[in-house]
Design a binder for these strands. Sequence first.
RNA 1: CGGGGAGUGGCGCAGCCUGGUAGCGCAUCUGUUUUGGGAACAGAGGGUCGCAGGUUCGAAUCCUGUCUCCCCGACCA
Length: 439
Amino acid sequence: MRLSRYFLPVTRETPADAEIISHKLMLRAGLVRQTSAGIYAWLPLGHRVLKKIEQIVREEQDRVGAVEMLMPTIQSADYWRESGRYDAYGPEMLRIEDRQGRDLLYGPTNEDMITALFRDGAKSYRDLPRMLYHIQWKFRDEMRPRFGVMRGREFLMKDAYSFDLDEASGRISYNKQFVAYLRTFARMGLRAIPMQADTGPIGGDLSHEFIILAPSGESEVFFHQSWEEARSAGDYTVDIEDTAALQAFVDSMTADYAATDEKRDEAREAELGDTLRQSRGVEVGHIFFFGDKYSKAMNLKVSGADGGMVTPLMGSYGVGVSRLVGAIIEASHDENGIVWPEPVAPYKVGLINMRADDEACIATSDDLYAKLEAAGVEVLYDDRDERGGAKFATMDVIGLPWQLIVGPRGIEKGVVELKNRATGEHEELSAGTALGKLA
RNA sequence: CGGGGAGUGGCGCAGCCUGGUAGCGCAUCUGUUUUGGGAACAGAGGGUCGCAGGUUCGAAUCCUGUCUCCCCGACCA
């Protein structure tokens, strides 16, 4: 993409209503604009990040056998009356009335609707187990939206739902999602720590929050030092079809202490001694096995193998997709701007033509741009006729992993400069070599 | 929802107390000189001061109401 044809309103000054660093940088880097309290427009660059994150979430859901679908943002109140939640949910739910006087709502979550949809389509034990998910905008009328997209009223969430015939099977579905979550966050360059959360009516330990360590996170968290090590998706490989191995893996991942402020265990912390760590954290995912809460209330039943009727057990699994954009920035930035982990960067390379009034610079830059595009490298090309300093500042604040710099000095020597945004390391090399490194 | 604060060109702010034709920095546009880490000079465009009422010869400024946004708290992906 040529910057001369893009829409990237970067600003030097920070809008006064931004408080935390990720929010400031998202505004400065032209990722989002606020349109109402807790509601944001995603500008082109921010939209690309959102899509990158969404795609990683999607791939990891698919990998554990969840099936993508799409439910509407607007729901009939009838689903919620059926589950008994319509009156219970309270003012956080945005209620709407259509021209016929029918009660509608902007969905804050989808358990009720998915239960109804699954009920109408699944008739036999052969239809289970199943995991369904969608990635859709939600609305919760928060009393107090804040922290930019980290606590918006409208937010993009991946929510998955599992349907199983018995608790053992439900546990497997839960474990698969557990693995998917670890891999999802690791792929985004994040250290996400699974922390035990409030359990449902069934009890046990089948609810976890996934917390990302970030200095300005909302909650105080405590954990074993082993969680400080960065891990990649590759550290989370396990044969998810091997039930025993899967369970063993989940057990090993929950063996080391990790607790939010509300869930601290004084005794265990005392045992940890020097290996106890403390940090701020942001909740980016929450998985939960709640059994027959909705299936029972909404009369979801399927024929069992023995001819009797079975009430499926359900779980739900949420990832805050839009929140992750803010969370990643909280975890990855420096004094000059955002430092995108490559898998979620809006573009991989920022190509800078230092002198857009110089024929040789234009020719070299255009050529590099064409070749990068041809090689499938996502490149944002600053071809504008502006001063170099302003271009560097723009590239720094938007934080693309690589900066490829073309200027008259380099051209004289037959080189271009390649700079790594995260490390600041830069080297001069031939255009061909640079292409090879980036492609 | 309780407490506090703020609405003035795109962004950041001053002006308000003590009414008298709206100002600064950044950004934008034009020209010239520049050119490897947010250039310099000259010029230009852009605001019915959140909205509605009121007081007054006259309101950004005083009064009343109202809307919106932000911060702290309790609640939440």
